[in-house]
Amino acid sequence: MGGGGADAGGLCALLTLTSVLKPDHFLVYYPPNLTQVVTLLEHLKILALPYLQERTLEVIHREWGVHSPSPSHTPSSNK
């Protein structure tokens, strides 16, 4: 489902998913941005599909460069 507006491909995909998804099962959607969440909700409303949006989460991924200290930077045991 692309960004912005109700595109025919996204609507068709939702209709297909709805026809094969068993009752009491889940549709889980992992879009890369919030705009696509809004588009999904628009599609669900347009088609009046029986889905419930339980929650929307944002997960931020940050890479950290954490390295073990080299032997020359470890505290000396000589006192």
Rank of each mutant, 00 (worst) to 15 (best):
M1E: 05
G2T: 04
G2D: 06
G2P: 07
G3M: 07
G4L: 10
G4Q: 04
A6L: 03
A8R: 13
G9L: 12
G10R: 04
G10H: 00
A13C: 08
A13D: 04
A13T: 10
L17D: 00
S19M: 01
V20G: 01
L21S: 10
K22E: 11
K22I: 07
K22A: 15
D24K: 15
D24F: 12
D24L: 14
H25W: 13
H25D: 05
H25S: 15
F26D: 03
F26A: 05
L27F: 15
V28P: 00
V28G: 01
Y29M: 11
Y29F: 15
P31S: 03
P31R: 01
P32K: 10
T35P: 00
V37H: 03
V37I: 13
V38R: 08
L40R: 01
L40A: 11
H43E: 09
L44S: 01
L44M: 07
K45A: 15
I46H: 13
I46G: 00
L47S: 08
L47D: 07
L47W: 04
A48M: 07
A48I: 00
P50K: 07
P50T: 02
P50S: 09
Y51Q: 01
L52Y: 09
L52T: 14
L52R: 14
R55A: 12
T56R: 06
T56S: 11
E58G: 06
E58A: 13
E58D: 02
I60R: 13
H61D: 02
H61N: 09
R62F: 07
E63K: 05
W64H: 12
H67P: 00
H67E: 11
P69D: 01
P69L: 11
S70H: 09
S70P: 04
S70T: 12
H73Y: 13
H73R: 15
H73G: 12
H73F: 12
T74D: 00
T74F: 09
P75C: 04
P75T: 09
N78Q: 15
N78F: 11
N78V: 14
K79N: 11
K79E: 07
